[in-house]
Amino acid sequence: MLRLSADAYKRMIGHCYDGLPLEACGLLAGHADSGKAEVFYPCRNEAASAKLYRIGIDWMKAERDADERGIEIIGIVHSHTHTDPYPSPTDIENAQAAPTMHYVIVSLRDTAPMARSFRITDGTVTEEFLTVEGR
């Protein structure tokens, strides 16, 4: 289960819209044990594509800030601009790089954004509850 603070949720959704027409991406930091994410770090999509995303040096900057706050990177966010919020074959293949992460996908296909969270282990996708806490 992934529990997002309201602030992290709002920033995540806003960043995904800001990235249009390209895919947007970012990182969530918080506590791995409880699955609580407090901070969203917007990242530059180094692929600069509507169909792909790639996080580069922004991961380092996010991790340094998270270290200072005493939290850690626990989630990876990206948007799907025109498709369901479900991991693509490319997402599943590349999840081997960070198999312990929560993978959040925000679909902007419909009028309202739809965010879903997954764990991706050894090529197996498992959806988990995604909740937003507070206001």
């Binding site: 995303y53 996080i55 997402d91 590349n94 790089a97």
Partner: peptide, 9 residues
């Protein structure tokens, strides 16, 4: 710095 190479579609 060593970082996970995170990418997808």
């Amino acid at each position: 710095s060593i970082l996970p190479a995170v990418a997808g579609g």
